[in-house]
């Protein structure tokens, strides 16, 4: 069983990093800066939680950023056209969910590997987003009933942070408390074993991919509300960060396995790192370089710690007779 260092080593490193920035980066510890970091973490972590649930059933969802951009465009378009925010949000989430359903169908029924399927639906979603906007952004004075979802605060806590707490709690409860969560985990860990034990593995895979898209949809609504605008590529910057958060999270708490707590904490660490580097005056491109190194390093760490090749279940292009 992985020991304390394997489970909490990178957690401790993350905490040390946060402490170091608090001590040395100018203004890092200012309340305003911390709130900004937390808000920015929310977008990232919610999207990354979706990816985590897809990876829990051993599928990759590379469409999350484009799905989020498309959903943002849908909600922006409708809000701009004076449709009620509730309806607009429903339409955006339904759009995201529909792509999740298509992803699940292609993976489980057509048996195309998720790596390929989600690259394909990502391209389709990007095309649809540009079609809807004709390449320009929807910007306007949107009702506070909508923008308040992201910009407002409840009982002094920023709403974005509450959304993150809610999505985290729901994901965590699903995976650790419910039979469905146990079935998703078993499907991802050992598909054949799960199937022989009577678990509806195809259904679990469809569920993981659906929830992944839904996470992207929620992120999209919050992004659009926060910016009062929607552009056809607005979530693109979050893509690598979201994947990095999941991979870094896999080195925490449950080594080698995608997990909710790891993803959320890793998202925070990545955002702190980005923020701290900016405050320390590092050039903007340093962030990208560090991010890439973290992605590769995380998987290498997982592999060494668990002594099994990472993604052994995920990337195999299995063919079943």
């Amino acid at each position: 069983m992985p020991g304390l260092i394997e489970r909490y080593g990178t957690v401790a490193a993350g905490l040390a990093l946060i402490a170091a920035f608090a001590a040395f980066a100018p203004n890092f510890a200012a309340l305003g800066n911390i709130i900004n970091v937390l808000k920015d973490t929310s977008f990232l972590a919610i999207m990354a939680l979706g990816f985590t649930l897809a990876l829990t059933v051993a599928e990759l969802d590379l469409s999350i950023a484009e799905v989020a951009s498309l959903a943002a465009v849908v909600v922006g378009w409708l809000v701009q056209s004076k449709v009620s925010p509730a309806l607009a949000i429903g339409a955006a989430l339904a759009t995201a969910a529909a792509i999740g359903v298509v992803n699940g169908f292609c993976v489980t029924v057509l048996r195309v590997p998720s790596l390929i399927v989600t690259l394909g639906t990502a391209a389709v979603a990007r095309g649809l987003a540009f079609m809807a906007t004709q390449g320009v952004a929807f910007v306007g004075r949107w009702p506070t009933g909508f923008t308040g979802l992201a910009r407002g605060a409840t009982l002094g806590i920023p709403n974005l942070v509450l959304w993150l707490a809610g999505v985290t709690a729901a994901s965590w409860a699903l995976i650790t408390w419910t039979r469905t969560g146990a079935h998703m985990t078993a499907t991802g860990e050992a598909e054949e074993a799960a199937r022989l034990a009577g678990i509806a593995t195809a259904r679990m895979k469809r569920l993981g991919l659906l929830l992944s898209s839904l996470g992207a949809g929620i992120t999209a609504v919050l992004l659009a509300a926060n910016l009062s605008s929607a552009a056809p590529n607005m979530a693109g910057d979050y893509f690598l960060y979201a994947i990095a958060a999941v991979l870094l999270g896999m080195t925490m708490f449950a080594p080698g396995r995608p997990n909710v707590a790891g993803t959320v904490f890793a998202a925070l660490v990545l955002k702190v790192l980005g923020n701290g580097l900016v405050l320390l005056g590092a050039a903007y491109y340093v962030q990208d370089i560090v991010l890439g190194a973290i992605m590769i390093g995380s998987v290498a760490v997982s592999t060494v710690v668990t002594n099994t090749p990472a993604f052994a279940n995920t990337l195999a292009f299995r063919a079943r007779a």
Partner: peptide, 23 residues
């Protein structure tokens, strides 16, 4: 049926394996 290699998820707990599909 007891399958040789196919039926266990090595990274999951013993209890999770015993109760897989019938938690």
């Amino acid at each position: 049926t007891i399958y040789q290699d196919l039926a266990l998820a090595p990274r999951l707990s013993i209890a999770a394996n015993v109760f897989m599909g019938a938690e």
